[in-house]
């Protein structure tokens, strides 16, 4: 049944005693569980979250550190990928945030590498997608939000509030716009985090639902085709959502560095 999807959660599925027919457990793949033994999940418990975040960290190290250890003037295969990632994010920060945003490039690079590797590792069958959890993406988005807001006040003091005072609008409209701007500013971390987790969760759950249909012989070919198509879409989504998260971070950083409209 669900084991055929590859997205299935092995331990959880083993417990499924339900008889034949259609069984959908699309959300089981998101369960956080201890890696060793059973029991409650405490703050320091080593869980599947730990495992997949560790794999992501190791993959990033392998790409960015081991891959560039040759320091070749003419890059090898892995080194060119590392340079490509570097150039991609560096150019994004420079283009969107401006020259003075380059100072914060390592932070944005950290976010991008973590998200892109978590997203792609989550596409491996049986994997756990760390970035499909709001707990993770909210922390990422709040880190950006708090960091950027603090940076704005440190750099510009009270003048940072000019961000909400649209001087190009007629004077009568400005207070109204200020309220709207203020609300939209505080909605930023919400949309920033939910966009990433929501996209990944939805894609993975949909694949799982299609996989559930594979139990019916009549529709299983369609189901397999649908899974294949969804997987292709999810590969795109994995990269695009990492890109979107990063470029929004750059936009917020630009607002903090240059709050004047």
């Amino acid at each position: 049944m669900a084991e055929t999807t590859g997205e299935a959660h092995g331990a959880a599925d083993a417990a499924h005693g339900d008889g034949g027919g259609l069984v959908f457990h699309p959300m089981d793949q998101f369960i956080v569980e201890p890696l060793f033994g059973d029991g409650a999940v405490n703050m320091l418990t080593v869980t599947n979250v730990t495992l997949w975040m560790a794999i992501a960290v190791l993959c990033i190290m392998a790409l960015m550190v081991l891959g560039t250890s040759g320091r070749g003037i003419v890059p090898g295969r892995v080194q060119s990928v590392a340079e490509l990632a570097y150039g991609f994010v560096y150019k994004m920060v420079e283009d969107v945030s401006g020259k003075d945003g380059v100072k914060y490039f390592p932070y944005i690079m950290t976010l991008f590498m973590f998200i892109v590797f978590s997203n792609f590792l989550g596409l491996i069958p049986m994997a756990f997608t760390t970035t499909s959890h709001f707990a993770v993406t909210v922390v990422l988005a709040l880190a950006v939000f708090i960091g950027v807001t603090a940076l704005g006040f440190v750099k510009h003091g009270v003048k940072f509030l000019e961000l909400f005072w649209v001087t190009s609008a007629p004077l009568a409209l400005r207070p109204v716009l200020a309220v709207i701007e203020l609300i939209s500013y505080f909605v930023r971390p919400v949309s920033h985090s939910i966009r990433l987790a929501g996209n990944l969760m939805a894609g993975h759950a949909v694949i799982k639902v299609f996989a559930g249909f594979a139990a019916l012989a009549a529709v299983s070919p369609i189901s397999v085709l649908a899974i294949t198509a969804m997987y292709g879409l999810e590969v795109l989504v994995a990269f695009i959502q990492a890109y979107v998260f990063t470029i929004l971070t750059c936009v917020y950083l630009k607002d903090a560095l240059h709050p004047h409209h």
Partner: peptide
């Protein structure tokens, strides 16, 4: 062993 609601 199945999730109750959204694990998120």
């Amino acid at each position: 062993g199945s999730a109750i609601g959204m694990p998120q």
